[in-house]
Every structure is written in C-alpha cells, then in structure tokens.
Design a binder for these strands. Structure first.
Lengths: 366, 366
DNA sequence: ACGGCATCGGGATACGGTTCCCGAGCCGAC
DNA sequence: GTCGGCTCGGGAACCGTATCCCGATGCCGT
C-alpha cells in the first residue's frame, strides 16, 4: 500500500512530475509556472500549482535545470587564503555583485599551490561556471603566463571566462580580463609622501621578491626616490613574506645593522603592524621617533595606534568590477561566434594615499 | 603541421559522445574510464580514451553527473559577512575540510538579512547540497527557532543536513547539528583574570543586547563577579554593535560619566581595538592606566600594541568539526531510512584565555 | 574439443527539468 | 456561418552522464 502518490511518504526527492500529478496538470505547465517565463498560464492552473508546491515544499533541481539549458549562472572565486583581509574584501565585492544579478558564487582556496589551482580551475570548468575569478598576486614566471593562457582558452572554449584580479595580466591575444589597481603609482605616492616629509633614510619592506605586487610596489618607491633625487640604498631593502612576523623581524634586524633609518615603508598594512611592534619593543615611539606607512588600507590600518598612513586600494570595488566585466562579456557572447577584437581586456583602478597619524617629519628636521 | 584537426569545430560543448566517437568506442566506455569505477576496461581502450580526452580538453559535465546520481558532494557556507575575521576562519575550516574530502564549497552572504537567509537556504536546497553550514551569532527570537526548525526539516527531507555554527542550538527533536564553543566559560575566565588582578571597576562592552553570543559573554562575566563577591554595576555596561566604533564611543562616553573604571572587558577583539584607541586619545596608557581584554583571538589581537589578552576561540577547528559532523551523518544515512535517536547533535568546543600584555593590576594596588 | 567462466564493450534507460510543436477551445470579424 | 487568430495545455524530444543488462570474445581445464 505504500504507493508514492500519497505524497506524505515521498520523503526523498519531490520531482516536478509529482507536483504535476498532484495538481492535475502536466509537468510542462508546472515548469512554466515556476520558471517565470512569460508563457501564458491560466490563473486557475497557476494557483493550483503554487498551492501544491507549497504543500510539498518543492524546489526545482538545479542540476536538471542547468542540464536543460536554463540554470543559474555561477561565478567561481579562486582565492589563496580566505583569511587575508584584502582578498576577503575582493571576494565580498564579487559575491555582492553576483548576488545582485542572481548569480551564485562558488569559492575554492588554492593555498598558494599551483597544482591545486589547476585542479580547481578544472573542477570549475566541470561545473560549467559562467566565470572564474582568480584572486591575488601571483609569481610571474614564464610558466605562469603559459598556464594562465591555457586556462583562459579552455574556459573560453567552454563558454566561460577568466578574470584575473590583482595579478599580472596576460600577454598576447588571450581571452581573459584583468582587473588591477595602480600598484606602482600608489607606492610612488606613498614613498613621495615620506620623502616630502623630509625622510631620506627609509627602510623598505616590499615583501617577497618574486611576487608581482611586491615588485610593483618596490618599483614605485624607487621611482619616487629618483624623482626626489635621493639615492636609493639597496641595503635598506629587506624582503620577506607578507606577514607581521616579517615586519617584526626585518625591523629588528635593521635596528642592529642600519639603525639610521627614520621611516619604514611597509609593503602591506599587516607588515606595518609587525614593524610597529618591533619599534615599540625597541623603545622607539611611532611616529615621534620613526614614521611608518602601510599599503592596502584594510580595517587594521585604522585600528592600530597610531592610525596608519597607507595606500587605499579599492579591493571591494575591484571585485565588483571583475564580476561586471564577466557578466558583460557573457551577455555580449550571444551575438556571434566570431571573436571581437576586444578579446582581452585590462581594467585599472586608481589608488590614493590615506593620510592618518603614523608619519611625521624626521626628528632632526623638527 | 600542428593542426588541431577536427577539434577546432567543436567550439562549445565537448560531450562524452564526441570523445567516444573520436576514440572509436562507446560513451559507456568513456564514462567508465573517467569515473574511476572499478569496472574492467582494457588498456587499449583506456589509453585511447585518455588520449582523446587530452586532445579535446574534455571535462565531464558536473550537472549531468549529479543528475545521473554520481556527482561531487557540495557544502554550502552561509555567512553574514565575509570580511569578519572570525567568520572567515570558520569558513576556512569548513572549506579546508571539504576540500580534503573532495567536496565543493558554495558560499553565500546573508548580510544579517533573514529574508536573504531564507532565500539562500532554498537556493542551496535546489543545488542539492550535501550540507548547509550556517555561521554566526543569531538573534534568538522565538521566530528564529521556528525558522531554523523548518530549514532543518526541509533539508533533512531532501537528504541534506543543517549545521549551525556559533549559533543557539535548536530545541526539540530537530534534525540539525550545532557546533558551538564554550562562550560563557570563556567570558567567565576572562573576567576572572581581571578580577584576580585586582580590578573591581570594570567597564563591560558585551556587544548588542539581542545577539546570542553577546548575552552569553555578559552572563559569564556576571557569574565571575558573583564568584569573586564583587558587585556587578550595571552602570558600567554599555551595549552596541560589534565594531571598533562602538568600542571607541563607549569608552569615550564612560570616560565622562563613570571615569573610575580601571579595566575594559570588551566583547570582541575589534571592540577592544576601538576602546584602546579611545583611551589613547584621552591620554591614558594601556595597560599602565587601564587594562583591556578582548574576545576571539583573531590575528588583530596580537597585532595591537600592547598585544591583547583575550579569549581564544577555536574558529577554524569549529569549521572543520562542522564539516566532519555533516559528512559523518551523510555516510550514516545510507544505512536505513529509519531515523536514529541521535537526530540532533550538539558539539561544544573549549575556549581558553590567552595572556598577553594588555592587563596589569590596577594602579592603586601597585 | 568443448563447456564454462571471467573479461570487457555496447545499447538502452533513467536522472529531472525546459522547451518546441501541435492541437483544442474560444472569440470576434467578415 | 465560417474562418482566422489568440490563448493555453499537453506530449515528446532533448540536455550529458552513469549504470544496468546482455552479448561477444578469449582462455582455461578436463
């Protein structure tokens, strides 16, 4: 007697046919009522279906829907590390913009592992995502260019699209969009801020040597030194990973070896926080004895004491722009199979210095 | 001569049949080669298929796969705010554990909007996710209980499972798992730490009155006061949202109205950061003049100067536990349709005080 | 030499929707 | 009165993959 028609025992899957049967209509009608197409459906059928849907607590199977051609567009966010504030803000921007359009967001973390990145891109390709957004500075090997170009073409062939955010853009005619910020100019402005305050001996903590963002920040600083006619002392540059331990250790070492610096130009707000602690531990005051600047303008910057003068990077905006770019391209794709000339695109957002309390003129000038 | 041959005209979707045809085998064989079932396939067929798969850069369609019964389990992470460090760490734990098992992670942000939360749970139900993990403190209305119970039952009926992390658990026989930490004990210990250092006039900034976590933290503190025989002055309690502006404003106001406090018991590390700034702005030193404690032990706590004494909450571990619970339950579900008695489950993780540099005995005792 | 078993490939079907196409009913207009 | 057009419902053909079931082949033992 345990027939399926009684509904109450339909514990597992409720299908569209169950609904149709119970409402006394065809599956096609149920689909039309639910899929909000503008196919005309009589009010009686509509209300009958809706009632049954509520009764049975039915939801459509997204996989079947996708398979049949309809289906919610999904954006994949691939990120090195969810706990990084900067990345989290980009992700927020992407997710927010996605939600606004009714898109779904899948996230995967790569943990800086290229193998895992590869695996994830393929996984996302399987999912048939509308776009893949790759976040975070990358190591700019030749191999990187090759790998990304392959990703881009694979995704493109599958009707998807690759968006690189805060990463080196791709050379050549590769179907990918890059969303970037003016990294070098930000560093230029930040270093200029210190130089124009009178600092000459500036300890630079750009970050890891191979990371694209670190390179850009160091270049910007170097250009500022040139512009101000101040010799750039490579002995005052110390490399290391983007974390506070690096900031701490680098300052501690510099205090022993080249203690005449009057300011610290940190590659990141987090690095600046570490540097600040090391200075305090050595009995130095910030900014009275030593000035500090950061980069990123994450919430931490204004939570430190003194509040950190830093470079504002519009991370959340970048995320939004990234998704918009992907969505636009998707819309445009419907036109013709023939590729447009604007296959690859490079969007650059501005940065600016946020002046807070961590910079003062060097002591001897006061 | 490096032509891609026929491949070039298969621009859009490459299906399993395309692969089969090109390899001169049936679709069934291709499926068997790729799905790593232990169905016996001859080496010649296998290698032929693999070759074509590489040539065509074929990936299986995950939607079709899911529809056919196989398919990657997916966990949905529903989170108020990606930029909150605590939530980000939970999410990291969930995501990491998911990845480890080959699961996928979908995220959605609710932005504290119950409507959006509802919509998201339904969306995830459509996706046929294996589990939904709901993060973050919630407002503990009666309606909350009802709503969550409905979610839990809906998901359960669809073969999925609801996991509540850092939220009030559900009353009654609701098929949901709760992963929690010992919030009240943490607060008890933290307040006890201040009391045993000699503080008696302690400014409490528990957070918003209605939030479940804030309530628990205040209760713990109150119990500590009782245990130490110290009267609990409600005039020294100031409510507000969990952000640094609240910490700043509350301390500023307290400095005018009840300036005799010697310590601040903040409901959150971020709140503590705001409080610390307000004290500094008023010319007070931390911890020499006023002690401060936090709660959460996010990275910020050790980036502040002085480093913050706080309560460590095992956020990432909670995330891992949450996913494990969901996975275990899923495995167990295959056994019998009949429900076990352990339909709802409540896991509680421990907390502990991390002593750093932001607490000293009050001045008059030194 | 022959039956039987293990190995392996292929056709058919199911998964749960969407949508094309057709047809029935109804109304208004000539 | 008839015909055309419009409204709306249903049957059926997909979407791409996994898997059941059956048949073909080859090898072994007796």
């Amino acid at each position: 007697m345990n027939q399926r028609k009684t509904t109450s025992d339909v514990v597992g899957r409720v299908t569209i046919r169950d609904v149709a049967e119970r409402a006394g209509v065809s599956a096609a009608s149920v689909s039309r009522v639910l899929s909000s197409s503008n196919y005309p459906v009589s009010d009686t059928v509509r209300s009958r279906v809706m009632q049954v849907v509520r009764d049975l607590d039915y939801v459509t199977n997204a996989h079947a829907r996708s398979l049949a051609g309809a289906g919610t567009p999904t954006v994949a966010i691939l990120i090195n590390n969810v706990t990084s504030a900067a990345f989290a803000h980009i992700a927020k921007g992407v997710e927010g913009a996605a939600t606004l359009r009714g898109w779904l967001s899948l996230v995967g973390t790569t943990g800086d592992d290229p193998e895992r990145e590869l695996a994830l891109v393929n996984l996302m390709r399987q999912q048939g995502v509308a776009a893949v957004v790759l976040l975070g500075g990358a190591y700019d090997y030749d191999e990187y260019q090759l790998r990304m170009a392959r990703f881009a073409r694979s995704l493109d062939a599958a009707g998807s699209h690759l968006v690189l955010v805060g990463r080196p853009s791709l050379q050549g005619d590769v179907p990918a969009t890059t969303v970037d910020y003016d990294n070098e100019s930000g560093a230029y402005a930040m270093a200029g801020h210190l130089l124009s305050a009178g600092h000459r001996r500036i300890l630079a903590l750009p970050g890891p040597a191979e990371l694209s963002t670190a390179q850009g920040r160091l270049n910007g600083a170097r250009r500022a030194f040139e512009a101000y006619g101040v010799p750039f002392d490579r002995g005052l540059v110390r490399r290391g990973p983007y974390d506070d331990a690096y900031g701490y250790a680098a300052v501690e070492a510099a205090l022993h070896e080249t203690p005449d610096f009057t300011a610290v130009l940190a590659g990141t707000d987090v690095v600046a926080a570490g540097a600040m602690q090391a200075l305090r531990a050595a009995g130095l005051r910030v900014p009275e004895d030593v000035s500090i600047t950061g980069y990123d303008d994450i919430p931490l910057a204004s939570q430190l004491t003194p509040q950190l003068t830093t470079v504002h990077v519009p991370y959340e905006e970048m995320g939004r722009v990234a998704l918009r770019a992907a969505a636009d391209r998707r819309k445009g794709a419907g036109a013709a199979a023939g590729r447009k000339s604007s296959d690859s695109e490079h969007l650059v957002l501005g940065t600016h210095v946020v002046v807070r309390d961590s910079v003062r003129p060097p002591k001897r000038l006061r």
